[in-house]
Amino acid sequence: MNIIETTNLSRRYGRTEAVHELNLAVPQGSVFALLGPNGAGKTTTIKVLMNLLPPTSGAARVLGVDSRKLGEREKAQLGYVSENQQLPLWMTVRQLLDYCRPFYPTWDRELEKNLLAQFALPEQRKLAHLSRGMLMKAALLSSLAYRPKLLVLDEPFSGLDPVVRDDFIRGVLEVSALGEWTVLVSSHDIEEVERLADRVALLDGGRLRLNETTESLQGRFRRVEITDAPAGVGPATDWLEWERAGALTRFVEPRYAGETTERAWRERFGDATVKMQPMTLREIFMTLARANRTTATEATA
């Protein structure tokens, strides 16, 4: 079952199309990462999903309800943490939790207590006096203590130093292990998300470039290096970043399927030495982003 589904979802700001006909499905229980460079349309997508913005066209369903009709009942099952969210900074951490609690029938006092201890948040300190990392933790705590079915994190790592970021990710990982929660996290920081997500989608220029599990993604991308490839052998149509320098030929194979793919390489390159290595998510996305840019430039030309 999908906890989020979008159908041809588009959102324009005047003449700028921030999101273009997005079709997305986030399965229940997954940690889904929405990746992409700045301005890719991640935050806009999330704002439409959270009914903070209406879609220009298309539709989105969140928790089985049209995003434009998200009511108190659905929001009681939704957690949202964003770098831009305006928290009531005049409140102390304790006051924030006391204020939020009555809105959620499923608020778990025990979990609240545990998370407070785990995040090491000073209860009596005003939010205005917390560091950015602490503030994000306080927001996360106020969005976790009622065990939401869906937790949405919009660029949660921005501006956090590595130690705090690590703490934060560990916190999310630990709580996501507590139950059947679905997490949607948007970020341009691929390395951090790699540790969290079991499924990723890549947005670029408001369009969806990719949507699959991290496992399958990392399984099908290989960086290949051929030494002494026969002259005259060109790249296959789907290879990316094809490059030849002297005796060395390099490319990225986006459809690696084990023995079958390796046999195809041998048939193409004969006795040449083939070396291949798996790629990190970051490398995969950089490769795809460059490829998209090249395609776009060619199309424009």
């Binding site: 903070l52 305006q86 009531p88």
Partner: peptide
Amino acid sequence: LEDPVIGTDTFWLTRPIANAR
């Protein structure tokens, strides 16, 4: 303006608080 009606980053908008309430 503690809970602004305008804007998309307002705290209350993502909480189960009905507009009429």
